[in-house]
Computed example of a mutant assay.
Amino acid sequence: MRWATYRSPTDSREHAALVQDDELHALPETLLELLASGTDLGHHAERARTIPWEVVTLADTPLLAPIPEPPSVRDFMAFENHVVTSYAALGAEVSPVWYDQPVFYFTNPAAILGPNDEVPLAPGTTQYDYELEVAAVIGAPGADIDPADAEAHIAGYLLLCDWSARDLQAAEMHVQLGPAKGKDTATTLGPFLVTPDELEPHRKGNGFDVSMSTTVNGHAYSNGNWADLYWSFSQMLAYASRGTRLRSGDIIGSGTVGTGCILELSRVHGHEAYPWLREGDEVHLDMAQLGAITARIAPCSKPPIPLS
Rank of each mutant, 00 (worst) to 15 (best):
N116W: 02
L121P: 02
E279V: 15
S248D: 02
A150T: 04
V56L: 04
G182T: 03
E282L: 14
S12E: 13
S308E: 14
M173W: 08
H82P: 10
G218F: 09
G253A: 14
Y6I: 03
I252N: 05
L246S: 07
A150N: 03
S86Y: 14
Y221K: 09
E33I: 01
L263A: 13
P306K: 05
W98S: 14
L58S: 12
A89K: 09
K302A: 15
L32R: 11
V83E: 14
I112M: 12
Q289M: 11
M77Y: 15
E23F: 05
S95Y: 10
G38F: 04
I51S: 14
G249A: 11
D184H: 14
T187M: 13
T126M: 05
C300E: 15
A186V: 13
D75Y: 12
L64Y: 06
A136Q: 00
P70E: 06
L237R: 03
A88V: 09
I297F: 06
Y239A: 14
V84N: 12
L35W: 03
G255I: 11
E93R: 13
E69I: 09
Y99P: 00
R203F: 10
G38W: 03
P201D: 10
P304W: 06
D146H: 08
E54Y: 01
P62V: 02
E80W: 07
W98A: 14
H15M: 02
V56P: 04
V84L: 15
A186K: 11
A17Y: 01
A140T: 12
G142W: 07
S37W: 08
I293V: 14
R245I: 14
E198D: 07
I262R: 04
L31E: 06
R267P: 00
G190Y: 06
I51P: 00
E172N: 11
L290W: 09
T10V: 13
V283I: 11
W276Q: 03
W163P: 11
L237M: 01
N116S: 15
Y6D: 05
L18E: 08
M173G: 01
A227W: 11
D250V: 02
T30G: 06
G178S: 12
A292P: 00
H271T: 08
